[in-house]
Design a protein around this nucleic acid. Structure first.
Lengths: 109, 109
DNA sequence: CTGCAAGTACGACGTGCATCGTACCTCAAG
DNA sequence: CTTGAGGTACGATGCACGTCGTACTTGCAG
């Protein structure tokens, strides 16, 4: 049925402190960076990020990211789709995602 | 004698995780934002930031900022000068300071 | 020299946060 | 219907962090 979960936090409700705290964690930052680097902005299955943690912790991190307003997720019941709220982020914090992507490029090279 | 303290962390030694963690704290972010908003880049006395904490905590925060590579301080013995490492930050994380300043403008209006 | 104000050092304390274990839910495949 | 994989809920644990108290250092003003 694909119900958009929890009405992803209010539009301009993005708080810089909350966002920075969310991005301060290495795993969460890796997720957002990976999403930001993918220009197609396709819907990702959150299992596809293979974080080195258990699935309970993964749930926790994705919840944190959703609460921070960085992603919105779509509940398929037994699976879940993740989507970056690129437009909202870019409008509120222009250049933020570029910083992450740039760092990503520097890291992998 | 004004000795440049502790050889402010290596040049390109700025780590995104460390920086984000440093900026995640409201008080530290306020300091950097204030510094970033001042285009003259003058040397500030760290007493002049009147954070709502004791001086021990202030020492801790400024130390954190210095360790993160965001500021360098000059030891005058009984007083201390604070200076934003704007050039280094801008070269490593272009646009980061602009984000803070933009948020500052939005907050005070 | 004697105060005083600014900073630092060290240690204590409370809270927040990342992590996991156990248990439960939900759908799809068989 | 049963099973298994993906996900969530709740609680426990351990560590990091922000905070402060006490004590010490440093330089300037008197």
């Amino acid at each position: 049925m694909a119900r958009t979960s929890t009405e992803h936090a209010a539009v301009g409700d993005l708080d810089l402190g909350t966002v920075l705290r969310a991005l301060a964690d290495e795993h969460r930052r890796a997720v957002i960076t990976e999403l930001a680097a993918d220009e197609s902005d396709g819907e990702r299955m959150c299992q596809s990020f293979d974080l080195p943690v258990t699935k309970q912790t993964r749930t926790y991190h994705f919840r944190t990211l959703r609460d921070a307003g960085l992603i919105c997720d779509i509940d398929y019941g037994n699976k879940k789709g993740i989507r970056l709220r690129r437009a909202d982020i870019e409008r509120r914090f222009p250049g933020l995602l570029d910083l992450l992507v740039a760092e990503f490029a520097g890291t992998t090279r």
